[in-house]
Simulated scan of single mutants.
Amino acid sequence: MTHITSMLETYPKDLGGLDREKLAECIATCFECAQTCTACGDACLSEDMVAELTKCIRTNADCADICTTTGRILSRHTGYDANITRAVLLACEVACKACADECEQHAQMHEHCRICAEACRRCETACRELAASLS
Rank of each mutant, 00 (worst) to 15 (best):
C56P: 04
I66M: 09
A95R: 01
T38N: 05
I57M: 09
C30F: 09
E21Q: 12
I27T: 04
K22W: 10
A91D: 12
E52I: 00
D48Q: 08
K13E: 15
K97Y: 15
E21C: 03
S75G: 14
A24S: 11
G16R: 03
Y80R: 10
H77Y: 11
A95G: 08
M49N: 15
A87N: 09
L15N: 05
L53N: 06
C30E: 06
A43T: 06
F31I: 09
K22R: 15
L90K: 09
E93K: 01
C67A: 14
A24P: 03
Y80K: 08
A82T: 14
A91T: 07
T29L: 06
K55M: 14
A91Q: 10
K22Q: 14
D14K: 01
D14W: 10
L18R: 10
A39S: 10
R20Q: 15
L90G: 00
T59D: 11
A87R: 06
L15S: 06
N83K: 10
I27E: 03
Q35G: 08
Y80M: 14
D42Y: 08
E21N: 08
L89C: 03
C96G: 07
D14V: 04
V94D: 15
V50Q: 07
C40T: 01
V88L: 07
N60L: 00
E93I: 00
T85G: 12
A39V: 09
C92D: 09
V50I: 12
